[in-house]
Design a protein around this nucleic acid. Structure first.
Lengths: 173, 173
DNA sequence: GGTCACCAACTAACCAGTTGGTTGTCGTCG
DNA sequence: CGACGACAACCAACTGGTTAGTTGGTGACC
């Protein structure tokens, strides 16, 4: 009856539900309802709640990694762009936090994630002459900074952005 | 029968259980078992699972806020000491992450947390001549940095510490 | 006698995952 | 052409295990 994109609708609905409540707090019936789909379709396509959760992450991880192209030559600008992305997609941030807590080490084994990280480290090495370690550290620091600012953005967004830009500039000094 | 510290044992057991599984994933029976106590004692002292969770946070928040005394004159050292504390108490970090996701805005209303933050901002203003906004930003940035490093510490802890120290030094530059 | 504690069983709801029965839409083959 | 099987989808009810919260009955200690 419904157009043939049922798996797509299920993934979207599940992403919302999981972002709000996490894996343990999510309810499969609620996901089915939100998707305007049937519960058995969920199990037909994704076999279990846990696997559905992983499938949602795998579906969204690409958005997360590629939505903001990495720019080793302009880390401050990169940081600000990630901040803007995070603020525009708060549910993606929550989804990642949940996943990190409830499915530890699953993300670290996702090839897309590993490769993306490796590419960034390599780009940093090429652009700055750092060794692997230093590039890895710098990346973790920048992302941590962005994360901290994401969780507590001030009331004046422009100034928040400017302050973040300046902070990263100092880091890369 | 048991020594009269039953509420204490319940709080400790609950802290472990909640740190591992979160609010939705925790099981009250498991907490009772871990505490070597009886389930009704939990409800006698804490009335509900949710309130028990909040009580755990309120119990541990002091540890979190005061275990590492704030030093506005030595932010790099402060950051490193927080990192060490986080690495020594990973379950406290998880507890905070869970709470942030599952009980949003509860922490922001805890007077202890609010006052501690205000005190830090005031100390930063006094020590550096910043305005409220700048002090608030700087604090968020430093804590974000520490958090990022906490989640992805390199294999060489000493170097991780040194790199964090240098990073914060540049921030406060 | 009141408080703290134990044990054990209970309830009432909830929830992941299943099953059976039905409809509509294809493409295929007789 | 038509009917037949395969498939996607729906609804609804069910199973079996789990779980927050309760109750009743017992002992110990102050």
């Amino acid at each position: 009856m419904m157009a043939a994109d049922t798996p797509r609708r299920i993934l979207d609905a599940a992403a919302d539900e999981f972002a709000e409540r996490g894996l343990a707090g999510a309810r499969v019936d609620r996901i089915a309802e939100r998707a305007g789909a049937n519960k058995q379709r969920i199990y037909a396509y994704f076999t279990s709640k846990d696997q559905l959760f992983d499938a949602v992450i795998e579906d969204r991880i690409e958005q997360l990694l590629d939505a903001v192209p990495f720019d080793a030559a302009d880390l401050p600008g990169y940081a600000v762009r990630i901040l803007d992305f995070n603020l525009a997609h708060p549910s993606l941030v929550r989804l990642l936090l949940w996943h990190n807590l409830e499915r530890p080490a699953v993300l670290a084994r996702l090839p897309q994630s590993v490769e993306s990280h490796a590419r960034k480290v390599a780009a940093l090495r090429a652009a700055r002459g750092d060794d692997d370690w230093a590039a890895d550290r710098l990346l973790a620091q920048v992302l941590g900074l962005v994360h901290g600012v994401t969780l507590a953005p001030g009331p004046d967004l422009d100034r928040t952005r400017a302050d973040l830009h300046r902070a990263v500039s100092r880091l890369v000094g």
